[in-house]
Amino acid sequence: MNHHQNIQQFKADFYKALAHPMRIRILEALCEGNKNVNELQSILGSEGSAVSQQLSVLRNKNVVYGIKDGTSVIYSLRDPLIKDLLAVTKRIFDNHLVDAISLLEDIRKET
C-alpha cells in the first residue's frame, strides 16, 4: 500500500469508528473533559452495557483511551483535534440546514 492509500484507509477506519450516534455523544461528552463510565452513563441517559460496548469500539480504534483510577477507568480523547472535527461537522450540518431553509423559503415564495 502506498502512502496515499494508507492515509485513505486510516480515514475510512477512523470515520467508521465514529459512525454511531452514541459514540458521537460519548466523544462530545469527552470534549468537555475526562469522564468515567458512570459519568458517561448519566450524561447519555443510557445503561452501562451499551455505553461500555461503544467505548470499547472507540478504544479499539484508538479514538479514546482509558486510564485505571482505583476501581474505575477514566476515559479521554486520544487527540484533542477530535473536538475541532466535531465542531466542523456541526458547522457543515448548520450550513445544510441554512441551505434547506432558504430552499424552503424560495419554494414558499413561488407558491
Rank of each mutant, 00 (worst) to 15 (best):
V51H: 01
Q41R: 09
N60E: 12
F14Y: 15
L103Q: 14
D79W: 05
R23A: 02
L44K: 02
I74S: 11
K16V: 01
S72I: 08
S46D: 03
D69F: 06
N2G: 15
L27D: 05
S46A: 15
I24G: 00
G70V: 06
L81K: 10
R78P: 03
I74M: 14
I7N: 06
L81M: 10
P21Q: 04
Y65E: 11
E32C: 02
G70I: 07
K68Y: 07
V98Q: 12
E105N: 13
Q53V: 02
S56I: 03
V37P: 00
R59A: 08
D99M: 13
M1N: 12
N36R: 05
E47F: 05
I74C: 10
I24H: 00
Q41V: 10
L18K: 01
K11E: 10
K68I: 11
L97E: 15
S46W: 00
T111K: 13
V57S: 00
V63R: 05
D99C: 14
A100P: 04
N6C: 03
G45A: 08
V37E: 02
Q5H: 11
S46Q: 11
P80N: 11
Q9M: 12
H4L: 15
F93A: 10
C31L: 02
N36H: 07
I43Y: 10
K35R: 14
A87G: 04
P21S: 07
G66V: 09
E105L: 15
C31T: 10
L81F: 12
K16R: 08
G70T: 06
V37Q: 03
S52C: 06
A87T: 12
E28L: 11
L55F: 04
R59Y: 05
V51Y: 01
E39R: 09
V51D: 01
I92E: 14
E28D: 08
R91D: 15
L40R: 08
I24P: 00
I43R: 07
R59G: 04
V51F: 01
A87H: 06
A50H: 07
T89Y: 09
R78M: 12
R91G: 08
I92G: 03
N38D: 09
Q9N: 13
D99F: 14
T89K: 09
A17N: 02
L86H: 03
L27K: 02
I43K: 07
L44P: 02
E28C: 06
I26V: 11
Q53S: 14
P80I: 12
E39N: 05
H3K: 12
C31Q: 04
N2P: 08
R91P: 02
R59C: 07
S42G: 03
Y65P: 06
R78E: 08
I67W: 09
A50E: 15
Q54S: 04
S72Y: 07
V63A: 04
N95H: 14
E39W: 03
S49M: 09
L85Q: 02
G48A: 11
L18A: 02
L77V: 08
P80A: 11
K68R: 13
P21R: 03
S49C: 05
M1E: 09
K16A: 10
V63E: 02
D106S: 15
Q9W: 05
M22S: 01
L81V: 13
E39I: 05
T111Q: 11
L40V: 09
R59W: 03
A87L: 09
I26F: 01
Q5I: 09
L58V: 04
L85K: 01
D106A: 15
Y75C: 07
L55S: 04
K11P: 00
L44H: 04
E28P: 02
D106L: 15
I26N: 00
D94Q: 13
N95S: 15
